[in-house]
Design a protein around this nucleic acid. Structure first.
Lengths: 240, 240
DNA sequence: TTTGACCGTCAGGGATTAATCAAAGTTCGC
DNA sequence: GCGAACTTTGATTAATCCCTGACGGTCAAA
């Protein structure tokens, strides 16, 4: 169970947040001013997964609390909560060590979204750091007995394995993503080549020819990479 | 140097952000729509420390890009940037996998604060976790009759024993860990050399040449350490 | 059937990227 | 500091991609 500390002097708001977070399965503690908050860490030696921290409080404000924690090498994620919404205040918050800064009043749903985003960031960093590298999601598609593997930039059949070049892969990938839908030459140039100018080129045709040789049973009778005259091309998945 | 990807179709805004981030010492790449952004990851095999992601873009919007990345187990922090500021839109953004959500128009200073907060979060998690690295399994691999022994940095065949240098071993191990998958030069420089800058160097090539001489039956026709033009290299295990 | 727009195809060249190798630089132990 | 082992640089050569542009074929409307 994840542990959360709410530091907020408005009891009503603190209780409201506690209620909602507990409903979501969090273990919640509250502190009604900055001094009490710091005591949780430095006197009671507690630790939390996240701190919800108000700025304007008696005795020690949120900025001071955040700074004190960071100075003490405590890097618990902080979601700062305050009525001060000017850019200067926001900057102060981040500068003090906040991870997010949410001006009051706020929608509960938005609060929860930001709250959860902060928590999930930890999970994600942990996964990124590769402790567990689960089986690689190989993004594959099979056409005419050929397996398209964008992860490895290759196209395998029983007989052979063809290596796709960068442009081949980009184009094919784009067409597949728009499967069934005709895509105009102009759009392809923009999306795949990044060309926004209106150039007359046979470049696309060339790649289509090559991709057809790779994929089609009979390249002269395209089933999968169809020409849509006057428009462009379309990828059509006939089987699986 | 930290690497940032800006995905934004308004060229003016993208250029402005690039200018400011580069001034702060970041290495910036831009993509002008969602498709091009995904290509950076899935085709060019690049990696970034942070993504600045616009929502409203042609062809593939920011929500879709974010979802696609998270589904592919890519957990690069995302700072979402958009004109859509209603609570529903914010929720959509976080639900798609964003780490922060900043409505346009925004003050540059606020953008930079949130941007930096996201990056520093990684540092902080790393510090929290100490140096918890998973124990390395001593795996022995045999290629073309040569046994690779990373423990002793040796490469044994019947005839001889080749001693691997540190860099040779690091590079080889990294390629083997990504067996079958092309790894970009940039990624190799980051993961093996620890260089985050964009240097033009032939250092990798040199080691590839050497490793090929060690491992390949015919170094002029690489079977195991293949070149993937425009991307980098890939280790391919042909037999056991 | 004619006509013009559109598409398929291919050879060749330009541009980019990689391989190679020698030489210089770096690091480390002694 | 010296020398050996290791790594990187830089210039040159080689490879490969991708685009250009021409030509011929095909399609559909008049």
């Amino acid at each position: 169970m994840q542990r959360v500390l709410i530091v907020e002097d408005e009891e009503h708001l603190a209780d409201g947040l506690r209620f909602n977070l507990e409903a979501d399965g969090f273990e919640v503690e509250t502190a009604y001013d900055g001094e009490l908050a710091l005591d949780k860490f430095f006197v009671e030696k507690k630790s939390f997964d996240l701190i919800v921290l108000d700025v304007m409080m008696p005795r020690k404000n949120g900025f001071e609390v955040a700074r004190a924690l960071r100075e003490a090498e405590n890097f618990t994620p902080i979601l700062m909560l305050t009525a001060l919404g000017s850019p200067e205040d926001v900057l102060d918050g981040f500068e003090a060590g906040a991870d997010d800064y949410l001006p009051k009043p706020f929608e509960l749903s938005v609060f929860l979204a930001r709250f959860n985003a902060l928590l999930r960031r930890r999970e994600w960093f942990a996964r990124e750091n590769g402790a567990a590298k689960p089986a690689r999601e190989t993004e594959v598609l099979t056409i005419n007995g050929k397996t398209i593997d964008f992860d490895n930039l290759e196209l395998k059949s029983d007989a052979e394995t063809i290596r796709l070049t960068l442009m081949e892969a980009k184009l094919l990938r784009y067409l597949i993503e728009n499967e069934g839908k005709p895509v105009s030459r102009k759009t392809i140039l923009e999306e795949v080549w990044g060309l926004h100018e209106d150039t007359d080129t046979r470049a696309i045709d060339n790649f289509i020819v090559r991709l057809r040789k790779y994929l089609e049973i009979d390249p002269t009778k395209p089933q999968i990479l169809q020409t849509v005259r006057g428009v462009g091309y379309r990828f059509l998945k006939t089987d699986l």
